[in-house]
């Protein structure tokens, strides 16, 4: 997994609260046994009408957002099912960063384990971003090292992230390899039970 430190990209605004993982990737696409190729099913029932044609009312289908790599969403983003297919679909579609006022726990973890950076910003900051991205073609920069989100017009907001996860994401480390280096401690624990 490649690490991420600095990142810039176009923003796709999804101004909805409680977007659940059933919406991000509907269950009929969970039957694959590998991790690839989920991007084309991202937000399937919002992006496509029942006849399989594009739903022109869903903003992701707007020309303006083609190639967007930063998703800005509402409260409690990623709630519901634990399916990791949700971050797999986001990543495969091209989203590398997701910004929201709050995330569901499992989804937040699942993002980091797949090299997607989830960022919590205040309600007011998220509102600014949503508005900017709704009106114009809007680019944001994310600096994970400095923990800052900014744009060229002067928007500047810092964010919190657990130092452990920050290191993992920046370096693109494999968590299992790290944990296996604690084998002595695990054995010790198992012995003492």
């Amino acid at each position: 997994m490649p690490g991420i430190r600095q990142f810039s990209g176009n923003v796709f605004p999804l101004n909805r609260e409680n977007v659940d993982t059933d919406q991000i990737i509907p269950k009929q696409f969970l039957k694959k046994i590998d991790r690839q190729g989920f991007g084309k099913f991202l937000f399937y029932h919002w992006r496509f009408n029942d006849n399989g044609m594009k739903n022109e009312d869903f903003p992701l289908n707007d020309e303006k957002y083609q190639g967007a790599s930063i998703l800005v969403g509402g409260n409690n983003f990623g709630c519901g099912s634990s399916r990791e297919h949700a971050p797999w679909a986001l990543l495969d579609y091209g989203f590398q960063v997701v910004i929201a006022p709050s995330f569901a726990d499992i989804f937040y973890n699942n993002c980091m384990k797949n090299g997607i950076l989830p960022i919590r910003l205040s309600h007011s900051s998220v509102e600014v971003l949503l508005e900017n991205a709704t009106n114009t073609n809007y680019e944001l920069s994310v600096d994970l090292e400095e923990q800052v989100v900014s744009d060229e017009e002067g928007f500047h907001s810092s964010f919190e992230i657990d130092p452990y996860w920050k290191q993992m994401l920046m370096n693109g480390w494999d968590e299992i390899t790290i944990t296996l280096s604690y084998d002595d401690q695990i054995k010790q624990y198992e012995l003492l039970r």
Binding site: S82, N109, N110, N114, D162, E175, I176, T179, I186
Partner: peptide, 20 residues
């Protein structure tokens, strides 16, 4: 508690999880 697939792999391999 529920976990994602990467965590499933982690538990299979290590019987542990990093948790705050």
């Amino acid at each position: 508690f529920g976990i994602g697939t990467s965590e499933v792999e982690h538990v299979l391999a290590t019987q542990t999880l990093w948790q705050s």
